[in-house]
Design a protein around this nucleic acid. Structure first.
Lengths: 247, 247
DNA sequence: TCTACTGTTTGATCTGAATCAAGGAAGATC
DNA sequence: GATCTTCCTTGATTCAGATCAAACAGTAGA
């Protein structure tokens, strides 16, 4: 048994067999045949990143891209004086990095420990250009990400603090429910937030105090429960939806 | 001469010859060979839209996509009670619509009279899937649009009113300067805003009064000139850059 | 068990931008 | 050239959320 698990481990580390990958069907790799996949796997390596570690720095050369196997990461941009906006939250199966661009306009940082499948950007770019099905998946994903970014622009430009918090909770409920396994469209009613209060503020364009006050109020009104710091339970989803000012 | 110009006109209307198109080299069509282009042109039609006309409604079926030949359009999202956020401004050579999606999550409305090259989404999707070079261009453009959306999220989430106005003026100066002709990276120091005060507010997440006050102040401080309602002249670009809190 | 530390909540006060409210200017229409 | 109409500016006031300030859990170490 020890030998078998060791071998399996080596296989995973060197990415000799992507068919065992837990995000095989949800990541963009799903576009590739077995042979293409093994060609791609030659270019990549599996790597663990610790919570808090920054993979890509805003303004630096965009030297890597990656698929997220497990863990959650943030995509952020900031102003010289330190103000920071989180412009994206990345889940397992998602793609990170800026393909086909010299510089990364944003930073990518792990919010939890995470397992990634990393490629050099130039290698990935070349491979993608000769595999239209992969580029198509990437296009679909980018279009979806753009939709999400625009919806967030509506939130940041026009919504009140209460509406923002409600929207975030619903979004998290939905994205954390859609873990990998294809069509499974279940929305969680209880989940651990991948963000602390400060990070929630940085996603929502609010301060930590406002986030805390809004959460306390939703709890007092019986809309949600807060069993502990990270855990949220949605007790009245309908009301939360009304409060989110759904477009 | 009259006969010749009539013929040319018919050619343009039916898109029999895209090689005469003014955005031939800046639009995604630049990815296509002469033969491919004429195949694509069979699927599309050229159409004029009047200022104020909405081509696509938020939430409706995404039935068309288009290239912008001339004119400027806005992409917007709104909340049921009427609050509206402009999530994109579209210039000649840009692509509009939501390919590979059933519904359009946003509206597209002409801010000026505009000339478009319109395709049914399903036809375009099919064509694109079999022309990787076209999809690649579209991917590049979508990635760029995502970068822009994220930069705007930083503005909406974290910047002050003054910083927002300064950023918008610089962005307009740069995008209006980059008209079509490839590498020409000139930033205009005097230009007509394609947006009225209300629309500037809707882009920036500010009210019309705040926009007006901020512009008045920049003018009083000698940073910009406002020859008339629509015209802006940048008199001290360096200072405008400082005020924009460039990341 | 005490202490330190980190993240969170709650309260008091302040402020930047929103809202409310007139006016003013430049076209368009008659 | 008078009267709308539309868009813009400016002033007065309000308010949602920021800032400032303190206290309160958990958790980790010593």
């Amino acid at each position: 048994m020890r030998v078998a698990s060791l071998v399996a481990n080596v296989y995973r580390r060197t990415m000799k067999d992507c068919s065992l990958c837990v995000v095989r069907n949800s990541a963009i790799c799903a576009a590739l045949s077995h042979d293409e996949l093994s060609a791609l796997s030659q270019l990549g390596r599996k790597q663990h990143v610790a919570r808090g570690q920054t993979l890509v720095w805003e303004g630096d050369d965009a030297i890597i891209v990656a698929n997220v196997i497990s863990g959650i990461l943030k995509v952020s941009m900031s102003i010289a004086d330190g103000r920071e906006q989180i412009v994206g939250v990345v889940f397992p199966g998602d793609f990170i990095g800026r393909p086909f661009g010299q510089k990364s306009p944003y930073s990518v940082t792990a919010l939890s420990g995470a397992e990634l499948c990393i490629f050099s950007r130039s290698n990935f770019d070349t491979f993608a250009r000769s595999h239209p099905a992969l580029e198509h998946k990437l296009l679909q994903r980018t279009l979806q990400e753009l939709d999400r970014a625009r919806e967030w622009m509506l939130l940041l430009g026009k919504k009140t603090a209460t509406e923002r918090i409600a929207t975030l909770l619903l979004e998290m409920s939905s994205r954390m429910g859609a873990t990998g396994c294809s069509i499974e469209e279940n929305e969680l009613n209880e989940f651990a937030l991948p963000l602390d209060r400060q990070q929630m503020g940085d996603v929502l364009g609010l301060t930590i105090e406002t986030v805390s006050r809004q959460l306390s109020r939703l709890k007092a009104d019986g809309v949600i429960g807060l069993p502990d710091r990270r855990m949220v339970s949605i007790q009245d989803r309908r009301r939360l939806q009304d409060l989110s000012a759904a477009a």
